[in-house]
Amino acid sequence: MIGAYDFCGHYEWTFEWLRAQGGHELVKAYWDEAIRCDSQRHAAALIKAEGIEGMKKYWAHTLAEEAAGYFSTATDAVFRIDMHECPSKGFLIQNGLVQFGDYCDHCMGWIGPMMKDAGFVIDHEHTHRGQCWWEIRAASDESAPSAPGEMSGANDVRLRGDWPGPHDRYERATDPDDKTTDA
């Protein structure tokens, strides 16, 4: 049986299997069709109906279930997550599993199109070591992301001593290909 306990391991293996079958576009289609529209359809429905309130409910449930080390905060205009210990990437690091080029892209792969459909855009940055931050606001809101510490105080992941380093960044994005990578 393919189980839930080590899900992140075979999920990452599957990305590479799909890439070998049909290239990057097939992996993107998988994140969108299988994960956003099928597996996580409950998240899409909740967030489309309730906006930021729906984001609070969805991530409170899912990150507790996955035992993540994170902090989240929100205003009426923006929802923010500071991920200090990503359970998913952490599982891969702990078990030495690397098949696919950038596992972290899968989050933007399904969350990006989901937010686009619900009328939101995403500012996001990740380290590839299990730390990242997300700010999600309405597409019509042209505000820049918060400064370090402004929304999350001392829980802001950008204030960690090990935060500096090569990162991947997304600015007002909804597509996993909208990525810039530090040299």
Binding site: A4, Y5, D6, F7, Y11, S39, E66, P87, Q94, L97
Partner: peptide, 15 residues
């Protein structure tokens, strides 16, 4: 392959 939590998250069966 081992995790830090003892039991997996059931919603992964959806995926």
């Amino acid at each position: 392959y081992v995790d830090t939590k003892p039991v997996g998250a059931a919603d992964f069966y959806f995926a």
